[in-house]
C-alpha cells in the first residue's frame, strides 16, 4: 500500500518536472532562436526550415551593419536621455506627491485625494489628450517623452503607503530637534523607504525604456526618436532604411537575394542589440521586481 502511494507520488513528480521543463524550454526557445539566427549565415538561414539549435555558419556581419547604422545609435542615445531625465522627473514628482499626501497635518488632504483618485477611473481618452498635448506645445518636443508621463498615480500611492508606515515618533523627534520639513524628508523618510523607492524606480525605468507610442504620435523628427520607435519601424513595419543595406563599409553583399537575407539578419541583430543589455542585468534586479509585485499587491 505504502509502496503504491510512493510510486504514484513519484510518477506525479516526474510528470510535473516534465511539464515544467517543457514549458521552460518553450519560454526560452524564441530568445535562443533570435540569438542563434543573429550569428548565422543569412543565406543559409533563409533556406533553413524548422527549429534552430546551433548557428548556421558563423558571421558577425549583421552586427557590423547594425552598428554602422547611425540612426540606431542616435535612437539608443535618445532613449538613454529620455530614460535618465524622465526617471529623474518621475522620482521627484512621485516623492513630492507621496510626501505631501503622507503629512498628517495637511489641510485639504482629503480633497486632494479625491482629485487624484478620480483620475484613476476617468480620463479624457486618446484624442482629447492628443489635442491638448499639441496645444501646450508637446508636439515634436522632447519634453513630450517626459512631462505627460511625469507621474504614475499608482506608484505615488504605493510610495505614500510606504511613507506612512514610518513611525511618527521618528519625525516628531526630528521636529523637536529643529529639523525642517525638507530635512525630515531627506534625512528621515527617504533613507527609511529605500526598498519601496527602488521598486518604483525600476518600474519607471522599465516603463520609460519601453515607451514608444507617445513618441510615435507626438515626435516628428527622426533624430528625436527613441530606440523603441526605431525598432518598431525596423521590426514591425518592414522598413529598414536603404542606407543600412548597401554594401558600403566593407561588408560585401553579393546579390539581390542575399540583400533580402541580410535585411532579415539585421532584424535579428537589432533585437539582440536592443534587448540583451536588459536581459543581462535583469537577473540581478529580479529580487527588487519581485518585491515590487508584493508591494503592489498589498496595496491592491
Amino acid at each position: 500500500m505504502r509502496l503504491r502511494t510512493s510510486i504514484r507520488n513519484r510518477a506525479f513528480d516526474v510528470t510535473i518536472y516534465a511539464i515544467l521543463t517543457l514549458l521552460t524550454l518553450i519560454c526560452l526557445y524564441p530568445i535562443l532562436h533570435i540569438l542563434l539566427a543573429s550569428l548565422s549565415d543569412p543565406v543559409r538561414l533563409v533556406a533553413h526550415n524548422g527549429i534552430l539549435y546551433k548557428t548556421l555558419g558563423f558571421t558577425v556581419n549583421g552586427y557590423k551593419l547594425v552598428f554602422r547604422d547611425n540612426s540606431l545609435l542616435v535612437g539608443y542615445w535618445n532613449t538613454i536621455v529620455y530614460v535618465g531625465l524622465g526617471t529623474l522627473v518621475n522620482m521627484i514628482m512621485t516623492i513630492l506627491g507621496a510626501f505631501v499626501l503622507s503629512r498628517r497635518e495637511l489641510y485639504f488632504k482629503n480633497h486632494i485625494m479625491v482629485v487624484i483618485t478620480i483620475t484613476m477611473f476617468f480620463g479624457g481618452g486618446l484624442i482629447p489628450w492628443f489635442l491638448l498635448m499639441k496645444d501646450i506645445g508637446m508636439y515634436n518636443n522632447l519634453w513630450a517623452m517626459i512631462l505627460p508621463v511625469a507621474l504614475n498615480t499608482w506608484n505615488m500611492i504605493i510610495l505614500r503607503t510606504g511613507f506612512q508606515s514610518i513611525p511618527y515618533e521618528l519625525e516628531e523627534a526630528a521636529t523637536i530637534d529643529g529639523a525642517s520639513h525638507l530635512r525630515i524628508l531627506l534625512n528621515v523618510i527617504l533613507p527609511l523607504s529605500k526598498a519601496t523607492l527602488a521598486v518604483i524606480f525600476l518600474y519607471y525605468l522599465v516603463g520609460n525604456w519601453n515607451s514608444w507610442f507617445n513618441a510615435m504620435v507626438l515626435l516628428q523628427d527622426r533624430d528625436k526618436f527613441p530606440l523603441q520607435l526605431l525598432l518598431k519601424e525596423i521590426l514591425v513595419a518592414n522598413d529598414t532604411s536603404a542606407s543600412t543595406m548597401g554594401s558600403a563599409g566593407g561588408v560585401v553583399i553579393d546579390s539581390a537575394g542575399s540583400a533580402t537575407a541580410y535585411r532579415e539578419l539585421v532584424k535579428y541583430c537589432t533585437i539582440v542589440v536592443s534587448t540583451l543589455p536588459i536581459l543581462l542585468v535583469y537577473p540581478f534586479l529580479q529580487k527588487y521586481f519581485v518585491k515590487g509585485v508584493y508591494v503592489g499587491s498589498i496595496k491592491g
Binding site: C27, I31, K232, L235, V236, K267, Y268, T275, Y282
Partner: peptide, 21 residues
C-alpha cells in the same frame, strides 16, 4: 528565472519577434 525573462523584453521587440516567427 527563465519564465520571467520574456517579461523584460519590450513590447515592440516582442511584436517584432511575433512578426518574424
Amino acid at each position: 528565472t527563465i519564465t520571467y525573462m520574456p517579461h523584460f523584453i519590450s513590447l515592440v521587440v516582442v511584436c517584432g519577434m511575433i512578426h518574424i516567427f
